[in-house]
Design a protein around this nucleic acid. Structure first.
Lengths: 208, 208
DNA sequence: AGCGTAGCTTACCATCGGTAAGTTTACTTG
DNA sequence: CAAGTAAACTTACCGATGGTAAGCTACGCT
């Protein structure tokens, strides 16, 4: 339980920094998800990693820094999968739908870590909350940028606001779906489409 | 700076419990909003209230308990204003619109406390997060209950999910509006209506 | 007047975030 | 293959903070 991902056959202590950092983030996500950010202690995380506390501080600077690193890593991954999803689709409707599916799939795949960690992140005053904010902004930006091709420049303010609503709505819906685990990412995406697509389409000169 | 709201003319020390509790919650909201939950110390809150720390523990049990109490109080108020708003309106469309306006007005009126406190609340493991969850559920329930009058019983699952999306979307949009403070609650509500009303109307047999 | 209890305080503990200073292991390089 | 060196790692500690035990004090009541 404590020694999680040993890359080498026998017990190997020393690890290169990058590898150790990844292991630390994995363990941290686990502990944060279990206990919540406040109740998690750096001592416990260190112990589970199988290393002493100052190593965590060497690599992440602070407890908050560790949380921020976790969120940032997940955020990069989220941006990657959603961007890829909208890339190979033609027409705004299909783009939005695919992006939504990718989003809900991502959440589903990381639910033990992402939702909890992201929820927790709202706590720590500046940096972690900022990081989460950045995650949401990156999603709204993606939506706006995607739609921008089909909309008169500059994008109307309403489109930006609509993107905000969609991102927030998805975040909430994902949480809801967690309690009804038999709903598929496709169903969730379809539901958001049914609810909002007409409202969005009226912002575009003509839908494809 | 330390002695904030003295209810009686001269310096009065002793206060009845209910009054003291309210004062404590007010101060706590202030401090949480300023420093963030983690960085706020019970010592500082106690000092600002002008009372000693064990009083806080006497009345709220723990730091988390204090936060929960703050959220719960705001939550009750939010339920009150939104319920009242939808009460005197006829037809589902007007109900939803009025409810939305009331919501955005509430957020606007409490932005220094509610958004911050609610954001912070996600941190503490069980109870505070639960409380926030309850706040959202109470809003979705209100929407569903309001719409239920116009919809075949039992309310379709889609309606519940749609309510989730709306609540989440509003939460996010409120945050966005905070950065563009010239947007009115009415505008925000209208935007949500424009985006989602058509999608909702199709769930109702026929709109009024 | 006096007495019970709600309101309140002082003084303390344990835990946890964070750090200084030193030790060990692995990799390079002559 | 020694030997140097830098990165990986540890022990031992500090101060602040959440939380508590035990006792004091003023208000209301008979």
């Amino acid at each position: 339980m404590s020694v999680s991902s040993q890359t080498q056959p026998a017990r190997r202590r020393r690890m290169p920094r990058a590898e150790r950092e990844n292991q630390m983030m994995a363990v941290a996500e686990e502990v944060f998800a279990e206990r919540g950010y406040v109740a998690s202690s750096m001592d416990e995380i260190a112990e589970r990693v199988g290393v002493s506390k100052p190593m965590l501080y060497e690599y992440f600077g602070s407890k908050e820094g560790l949380l921020v690193a976790c969120v940032r890593r997940a955020r990069a991954e989220l941006l990657r999968v959603t961007t890829e999803a909208v890339a190979d689709a033609q027409g705004p409707e299909e783009m939005l739908r695919r992006g939504l599916v990718a989003y809900f799939q991502f959440i589903r795949a990381h639910e033990q870590s992402w939702i909890v960690v992201s929820g927790q992140a709202a706590v720590v005053a500046p940096s972690a909350a900022e990081e989460l904010e950045a995650a949401r902004r990156q999603q709204t930006d993606l939506i706006v940028a995607t739609m921008a091709r089909y909309v008169p420049q500059p994008a109307p303010m309403d489109l930006v606001a609509a993107a905000e609503v969609i991102v927030g709505g998805c975040e909430r819906l994902a949480l809801y779906c967690q309690q009804n685990p038999d709903t598929t990412p496709e169903q969730a995406a379809e539901l958001v489409m049914q609810l909002t697509w007409f409202g969005i389409a009226r912002l575009l000169p003509d839908a494809a």
